[in-house]
């Protein structure tokens, strides 16, 4: 098993190493040899990753596996000990406009004097440019985005007067307004209500239909096969990455999560019984 993991690592790293600049340019996200360490403890270790375009990608792994760190390191928000990250072939600094980021919600000052519409309009600031004010057209655009997440009736509400799920939808609408090609979302489903979860899913599907790429840190394994089509199994280094069909197997999950698999096996099993799926597509069937 270990040898196989070793072989996997080598093959996946070889894949990224072997990329030509031209291939890189077509990849929304290519990470090579990424190592992040706090003091001398590694958080991410020898991460090689190539994210294909137009997919919904779940990043899953146990607590402390470095999921959020992966996103932050890709965005240059925390220093890297080694490694190269390119977004459509260029470092992030040159591709900011192409990237949308939905952070975890804790960092926000909810008392800030802005309403939902203002927050969404902020997604457009990059395009509006310096000096020019937010015009009516921008406001209209922001309202449209709010409508997509079902939040248009709350446009004038100050953000602290929204529920947790509603706040999350507003931040998603802001990401939409950014009109990026590659989205990073850090646990968007954490602590949201059913309506919001549905809204987020609808939105993800819509983004995918529009050819966008979404990298989503996710913690609910049961929903991975239904919500996403690609998965990155992460535990300090990439255990496995690829289409859900081939990668999201019990064996790989065990390698990622260790013993905590009871719930998971259940979920997989349920999933493999789902009549809407073509039969025998995944390892879960072997349970």
């Amino acid at each position: 098993m270990a040898a196989q993991a070793q072989a996997n690592r080598q093959s996946s790293s070889a894949r990224v190493h072997a990329l030509t600049e031209d291939q890189r340019r077509r990849l929304p996200l290519a990470i090579q040899d990424l190592t992040v360490a706090y003091h001398r403890k590694p958080v991410l270790w020898d991460v090689d990753l190539a994210i294909p375009e137009g997919r919904l990608i779940a990043v899953v792994g146990p607590n402390g596996a470095g999921k959020s760190t992966l996103i932050k390191a890709a965005l240059g928000l925390i220093p890297r000990a080694s490694g190269r990250v390119t977004i459509y072939g260029q470092p992030y600094e040159k591709q900011r406009r192409l990237v949308g980021y939905v952070p975890q919600r804790e960092s926000v000052d909810w008392d800030f004097p802005v309403n939902a519409l203002d927050v969404v309009a902020m997604g457009l600031y990059g395009r509006i440019g310096w000096f020019r004010p937010v015009a009516r057209a921008h406001r209209r655009r922001a309202l449209e985005e709010l409508e997509k997440v079902g939040m248009a009736p709350y446009a004038q509400r100050q953000i602290s007067q929204l529920s947790g799920g509603q706040q999350q939808r507003v931040f998603l609408a802001r990401a939409l307004a950014q009109d990026a090609d590659l989205y990073f979302m850090d646990e968007p489903f954490a602590g949201v209500d059913v309506a919001t979860e549905r809204a987020i899913i609808a939105l993800l599907k819509e983004l995918k239909a529009a050819g966008k790429t979404c990298v989503v840190v996710h913690h609910d394994l049961q929903t991975v096969p239904t919500y996403f089509d690609h998965v990155v199994l992460l535990n300090m280094r990439v255990v496995e990455a690829g289409p859900v069909d081939t990668v999201f197997t019990e064996e790989n999950l065990k390698k990622t999560y260790g013993g905590k698999l009871t719930l998971l096996s259940q979920a997989l099993f349920e999933y493999s019984k789902d009549p809407r799926l073509p039969s025998g597509t995944r390892g879960g069937g072997a349970l």
Binding site: R96, Y101, F112, M122, Y125, Q178
Partner: peptide, 22 residues
Amino acid sequence: VAFYKELKITSFDPALATTLGI
């Protein structure tokens, strides 16, 4: 007045401002 929206976004969410190139 000139930097109204830039001041607003950098005060509210400096990380987002940075990702937007402000």
